[in-house]
Design a protein around this nucleic acid. Structure first.
Length: 228
DNA sequence: AATGCATGCAACCGCATCTCC
DNA sequence: CGGAGATGCGGTTGCATGCAT
């Protein structure tokens, strides 16, 4: 394969980022091996892709998950299980990696709190991290990595309709707040190209709602979720 | 102020899936 | 149709930073 000598690993430098962004602008964000080669970066195509998707992509939001996003993640995880990319598609500007990390952290916290308050021995000792998700069994044909085949039983706490309503509500507020631009990283200062959020992929469900770009801080402006 | 521990995040790895010839 | 290479995904690891002692 292309695992050559002198392949760089580890953290990316700003110089590398600039280089990568330039070449992605030039050739698009599909041909990663090609980009890795022609850019002169001593990185694998895989590494380039990952860096782009998780850090350099212009649509990325950065910073803390908002309460709304957190709730959405929880809900979607109960639906999809550990299918992070799928969940990420519902959260514009968030990456599968980010969500995965968030989930782990979240579960760790939960576990700890459970232990603390675990005077109640009835609480079953099973992993939150691998809840499976209600939709693993109901995945559409062609869907990837369907690992479980549990029968359909859905003690659903929260309907997707509710979630979407919430989300739309947020969007409205968001729009009022300003013309939001989700700036990915300072690297974009180097690039005049007009990248925008429509790069974010949508699937059937998403196409139901008029998704707008979401700015970084907008959800923070809605304390309505903090009520808990 | 120094040290150890916890947390968050970026990046790597291996495998699955897709695409092209 | 089958194989090879490319891409995508999920799990895991390692490092940097923050916090507690």
């Amino acid at each position: 394969m292309m695992e050559k000598e002198g392949v760089r690993k580890g953290p990316w430098t700003e110089q590398e980022d600039v280089q990568l962004v330039l070449y992605v602008n030039l050739f698009g964000d599909r041909r990663w091996d090609f980009i890795a080669k022609v850019s002169g970066l001593k990185r694998t195509g895989k590494s380039c892709r990952l860096r782009w998707v998780n850090y350099l992509h212009p649509g990325l939001k950065r910073g803390k998950m908002t309460p709304h996003e957190e709730r959405l993640v929880l809900e979607l995880h109960s639906k999809y299980g550990n299918r992070w990319s799928r969940i990420a598609r519902k959260l514009p500007g968030r990456t599968d990696n980010e969500i995965k990390n968030y989930w782990r952290t979240h579960m760790r916290k939960m576990a700890q709190e459970r232990k603390k308050g675990a005077a109640s021995p009835s609480a079953k000792e099973h992993s939150f991290y691998d809840t499976g998700g209600m939709e693993l069994m109901a995945a559409a044909p062609g869907e990837k990595k369907i690992t479980s085949s549990k029968a359909e039983e859905s003690p659903k706490v929260y309907s997707m309709e509710d979630i979407w309503e919430d989300f739309e509500f947020s969007q409205e507020n968001c729009n009022q707040l300003m013309t939001c631009q989700a700036v990915a990283s300072p690297i974009w200062d180097y690039c005049p190209t007009d990248h925008s959020l429509q790069l974010w992929s949508m699937d059937e469900e998403e196409s139901r709602l008029p998704m707008q770009p979401i700015g970084d801080d907008h959800f923070h402006s809605f304390p309505y979720y903090m009520t808990g």
